[in-house]
Design a protein around this nucleic acid. Structure first.
Lengths: 126, 126
DNA sequence: CCTTGACTTAGAGTGCACTTTAAGTGATAT
DNA sequence: ATATCACTTAAAGTGCACTCTAAGTCAAGG
């Protein structure tokens, strides 16, 4: 799979894919005899994992650390679990923030709707 | 309320509070005769609103736009609603990402737990 | 043969959201 | 009185995650 195909499949620019490789997030990407990347299944699974984590805001540094633990081998399983649990905590906090803000947006939108319908004339600004 | 008090109350550094004011997110902050900020109720409500939105990742530019609509007056209610609805859409997408990533983290953590308990020996890396 | 287009690299540049610095003022504590 | 502390401003700096540029290679098509 060429970089263009992978880029399309996962909606990640070739620049970003090369960047991920450069910083050690995706290692051992196979090359053709001309040095052109030819992504295999393993690389694709890695990319999909990174995309998922990044889309939720998991930091690059954290992913680099996790990947390096994975590549070190089975002795790092405790560390990997700890790292994943920390990230879960962070995401739970984010989830809470987003849920609270969504509630607030829904409330504000409903207030504006009432105003438009003439059911309400006074409202606190913001 | 001094900047230090507001900073503590909302857990936002004084630097950030001044920055918000500079870029037009918080306007008309009262001052003492010496030019020192003396935040009133209105400013505090505004700060709390910004904090909530920012904590969910709503962009500064978007908040500046919203605030300027609010300050323009009632003629902007349709625009405000549209803006808030757009932000709600964005947050729903984020919420989905986070939920998916949390599911994945939970699954991975449970796999590692099984490995630790000796219930599983093989597992796909990452 | 020559152009086109996709790829390669290293390194510089960008955008966002702060954060720090430099230089200064003014009220309180020793 | 002098030091300390919190505050003030404008402007430069930082960190993260890309994103772009420059200079080059290579294979296929006209």
């Amino acid at each position: 799979m060429t970089i263009a195909e992978v880029s399309k499949k996962y909606d990640i620019t070739p620049d970003t894919l090369r960047y991920y490789e450069r910083i050690g997030l995706i290692s051992n990407v196979p090359r053709t005899k001309n040095g052109i990347r030819d992504y295999d299944e393993k690389s694709c699974r890695r990319i999909e994992f990174i995309k998922c984590m990044r889309s939720a805001g998991v930091e690059i540094e954290t992913l680099i650390k996790y990947i390096s633990l994975v590549e070190t081998g089975k002795s790092t399983i405790d560390d990997r679990m700890k790292l994943l649990e920390e990230q879960r905590e962070k995401l739970l906090i984010k989830q809470k923030s987003i849920n609270e803000t969504l509630d607030r947006l829904n409330y504000k939108i409903s207030v504006y709707e009432e105003i438009k319908l003439g059911k309400r004339k006074d409202f606190s600004e913001e």
